[in-house]
Write a protein that binds this DNA or RNA. Structure first.
Lengths: 309, 309
DNA sequence: CTGTTAGCGCGTTCAG
DNA sequence: CTGAACGCGCTAACAG
């Protein structure tokens, strides 16, 4: 293109206040260049670290991210997916733990495969075992590592805020905890394993429940930090001194932990890296065989779980 | 439409995995039905209550919200606006305090007027004095009310974390504080007014600065809660007992205050209502004369500012 | 109520 | 390197 003409056009465009019509581009090209994130199980007000990881990765790649969050409802997830598809994203990333009893998984898979047939790209986060490229996290190992670390500090009387009974992430972490403790000779009484929503308020409620039982517990482990934060608030209300009277630990190392007292022991999960890998995968061509990568977390000991002397 | 035919079409659509092409709809209709939120000055990790208010309102109205956040940079805001326009939203809401020295305001106004000419709808939040429909907040009054309340509790030695020197919201709140205190006979020494970014980290840094000065202050007022939360963290690190040795107050009543100790005194700003009004305005036809509504906040006293005896 | 037709703004040909 | 023509999937306007 001649420079002179380019200038002339640009100048005219500026004068007339022209703005590209991305919708028209999308129609002509078949997709809109953006990546969609379909997130289930977003925890509470504290924005899910999963989403945050993908978001940051998208930002670094200078990519637009369309987001849809559904409250774990299978039916709603399907509707949301249909809506997202309407925008013709070049890739869809599905994040959030799968549940053991979701009858809609099949329909989800079908819809996503349909989308792939239409030329889209699908990447799953935290949902191993589905027929798509997947990035996930070693939740059982994370549970084991945390249990071993805390047992090493001298803790023996555990309570576990185990999350809902059907969320795989919660189940895996709980399993890891119980398994490792068992191998170390420490049993967790069934009564000390509390089922509750994986949210701040869920942790708050479970803490209240635990208080009424007076179970002589030394430490509470919540399978997600947001629950641990809620528990902290409830214990504080009940004038339990932390961490002297009771230790607390969580999982994920969410950013909100910065402003919590005492500083919370947790298992850092490299969500940013998960997000980057997922995005990278989403932008790449689909290979002949399915990618299935697993990442590990690492325990971070902080003031909420001092060594018992 | 005959029910029989509708069924037949729907069934075929499901079988073929049909998904509407919203982009094509947008091209044909001229806009995409969504409302865009162009937010400046998003505070820190804690998502701006302004955006949260609009988001909630949009959710209630079952509307899709396109968001663009710019870090207060005038140049970037313009580029972002161009990008948003490309998506053909039916309305654009511009949120975030205006600054006194932004040379790009004129260009922003021009671009937005161009958009209005093309049939779009523009609504401003917190930026009074611009030629568009506007919802804003009485920041001077909020400052005055908080000052009067705290003076009433017995406080006389104030420090103010005043935010950046060019953000109108920060300036107005600071002005209200100083004015009202002056009328009550309490002067705030210029050295006790700290300029800092309107973020958690800004408050954290300002608190550190204040500690080195040893100014004999009874109470710190930050012009935004996120700064107050940061200050809390810094004071705690320095083993200042709160609120015994030092009181702290903020503005906005952001949700993150729930998990902060001690509970923070603040001025609740009805951001949800602001968001609702803005959205309502954005969906309505533009009237002959400009709408300019002002909302008031109200002081909430909590444990961080006990009465001095 | 139904079938038909003309654009919407842009990418992608294919000639000039 | 440039201009013209076609088609993307859909809405709106119109005729049957």
């Amino acid at each position: 293109v001649r420079v002179e003409n380019e200038q002339r056009v640009l100048e005219a465009a500026g004068r007339l206040g022209y703005a590209v019509n991305l919708a028209a581009q999308t129609v002509a090209r078949g997709h809109n260049g953006a990546v969609a994130l379909l997130a289930k199980d977003i925890a509470d007000g504290y924005f899910s670290p999963i989403a945050a990881g993908v978001l940051q990765a998208a930002d670094d790649a200078d990519l637009i991210l369309t987001m849809g969050s559904t409250s774990g409802q299978g039916e709603r997830t399907l509707r949301m997916l249909a809506g997202l598809r309407g925008h013709r994203p070049r890739a869809i990333i599905v994040a959030g733990s799968r549940t053991t009893d979701d009858r809609n998984t099949d329909r989800l898979v079908t819809a996503l495969q349909q989308y792939e047939t239409d030329g889209g790209r699908v990447v799953m986060i935290s949902q191993p075992g589905l027929p798509f490229d997947t990035i996930s996290v070693e939740n059982v190992t994370a549970g084991r590592d945390l249990a071993i670390a805390l047992h090493g500090l001298g803790y023996r009387k555990f309570a576990i805020f185990a999350g809902p009974g059907n969320v795989l992430t919660a189940l895996d972490r709980t399993q890891g905890l119980i398994e490792a403790l068992g191998e170390l000779g420490t049993e967790v009484p069934v009564g000390n394993i509390l089922i509750c929503p994986m949210t701040r308020d869920g942790g708050y409620a479970a803490a209240g429940e635990l208080l009424t039982r007076n179970a002589g517990v030394e430490i509470v482990i919540a399978v997600h930090d947001s629950m641990a934060v809620g528990a902290l608030a409830r214990f504080r209300e009940a004038s339990v001194s932390l961490p002297e009277d009771l230790a607390v630990a969580g999982f994920d190392d969410i950013p909100a932990l910065r402003d919590v007292t005492p500083a919370l022991t947790t298992v850092n999960i490299p969500w940013t890296q998960v997000g980057q890998l997922a995005l990278q995968l989403a932008l790449s061509e689909r290979g002949p065989k399915r990618v299935a990568e697993m990442l590990r977390g690492h325990v971070i000991l902080r003031q909420s779980t001092p060594a018992l002397t």
